[in-house]
Design a binder for these strands. Sequence first.
DNA 1: AATACAATGTTGTATATACAACTTAAGAAT
DNA 2: ATTCTTAAGTTGTATATACAACATTGTATT
Lengths: 133, 133
Amino acid sequence: MKYDLQLCIGSRLRRLSRIADRHFRSKLSEFNITENQMTILFVLNKKGKVEQGKIGQTLVLERSTVSRNIKLLEKQNYIKRTSDYRPEIELSKKGNELVQKLIPLWEETMDELISKLGENGLTYLSKLENSLN
Amino acid sequence: MKYDLQLCIGSRLRRLSRIADRHFRSKLSEFNITENQMTILFVLNKKGKVEQGKIGQTLVLERSTVSRNIKLLEKQNYIKRTSDYRPEIELSKKGNELVQKLIPLWEETMDELISKLGENGLTYLSKLENSLN
DNA sequence: AATACAATGTTGTATATACAACTTAAGAAT
DNA sequence: ATTCTTAAGTTGTATATACAACATTGTATT
């Protein structure tokens, strides 16, 4: 083999994302949401009322993934949607309150991860993102 | 917020792994296996007959994930297992033949990705791995 | 050897994701 | 305005993963 198996870029990136997710998830156990749902709530917090598709566009998520997550978040009354088709989504009051609780936890996790990654870690991550598209 | 949402390390690593996976997957459409199963086959190709747990250890995969993948690979007769409990796994003849076909495709994909990542990309990835644990 | 504990494997449940098929609406072209 | 095309949303199916519960087997202690 030209490269060693351990070099497999796919397998390694998958592993890295599992590690990072574990950090975030450990802070979310008391809330009934996932890491992914957290980032969706943050998008809504930042952008206000947006079309559903805009969320996927921001986070580069599949339409189906967004669709299902929206449904899960709505079930817990964290978001509101306007029309039936091509709805606009926004945080509910309850969702807003949740976001206020989540932000410090997310920041703690980011602090943890950044301290692990070191000063240059974020730069490396950005460089990977810039080249991989 | 202390950090910008777009900086979320979890969300970004998830996205990167999706991108890399897409590259590998596009080469796998004619075979009935996934990226993850491919790496498992490669582990078996490299290590020969191993305990199932060793696979998870090598790739840092959950026991349940390995268990289910083994089952899927066995269903297609790509691997053989010895005993019933705590089995030893190895490639079948058919599995070996598949691996021989997969290796060049995997290498092509690695070439693609490495050319995108640039010379330093792999170094950055390694640094991320070394710091994130 | 018998018991207790630890490691390993399996299975159930829930979400993440890909991809395809389908539905519905919006916009363009006439 | 009607028709056509395209974009967006939903849903079905399959795997990836986490986590918990459970089963099985090895190992250590006595």
